[in-house]
Design a protein around this nucleic acid. Structure first.
Lengths: 112, 112
DNA sequence: TCACTATTTCGACAAACGTCTATTCAGGGG
DNA sequence: CCCCTGAATAGACGTTTGTCGAAATAGTGA
């Protein structure tokens, strides 16, 4: 072990994670958001949703070779993590990104 | 469903995810990093490691009520995701953050 | 009312995960 | 050389996850 190093880093800069101590309760609150993005299908879903103001579920499903219920399941995970929101209009359901949620996660990671 | 909305967002700003299409291969490459941060223990470990230049495993283990092997397992996940690196010096092993990895994740999420 | 479509929920199942204990590996000091 | 300590690995076990097909729900329109 300890051999998987191949990148040189600048040691003095670091991220928002370094600034607050992040107690156990905070970690339990935040981790589910990262977890939601930790699946390739959900990450692509999030990117697709983020790439427009809102996206219909039918347009999401058609981008994958997965069943409708599976996409629906992943959308629910993203929704329950607070990363997206949805709205039904007629037969269709439209999903939108919640930029403030993604942004707060980003701030944790961003070098400052 | 569709009731879990409680925050108002500004619709025109969004994150790096929106800018590139993020194909399947890209998602498979990036998702494991989010996944690694998607566990409360690992998120706290990352925060602890980030809060200093380097941290000894013994100082990490003492912060949790988990067994040594469990901490070691989580550190391995963070390591294999490329988020941290380690170095043995004598009996002890020290972990460091890889800020460029966290930063690139952050850029994906950050509103810009 | 009935049929049709879009989406979600339910129930099942294999694979992956988080945790533990027991064991092994690496270094240091008598 | 042997023992002690810090850390990682191996193996086991219960839980969670990702996926599916079948069924239920919501809305449209004849």
């Amino acid at each position: 072990m300890c051999q998987d190093r191949d990148v040189q880093t600048d040691r003095d800069a670091c991220c928002g994670l370094a600034r607050q101590p992040l107690d156990s309760a905070g970690a339990e609150r935040i981790a589910p958001m990262f977890k939601a993005l930790g699946d390739p299908v959900r990450l692509r879903l999030a990117a697709l949703i983020a790439s427009d103001d809102e996206v219909c579920v039918c347009d999401l499903t058609s981008q994958f070779t997965l069943s409708g219920p599976t996409i629906s399941h992943h959308l629910r995970v993203l929704r329950e993590a607070g990363l997206v929101e949805c709205e039904r209009r007629g037969t269709w359901v439209y999903y939108r990104i919640r930029p403030e949620a993604l942004g707060s996660l980003g701030a944790l990671l961003q070098v400052g």
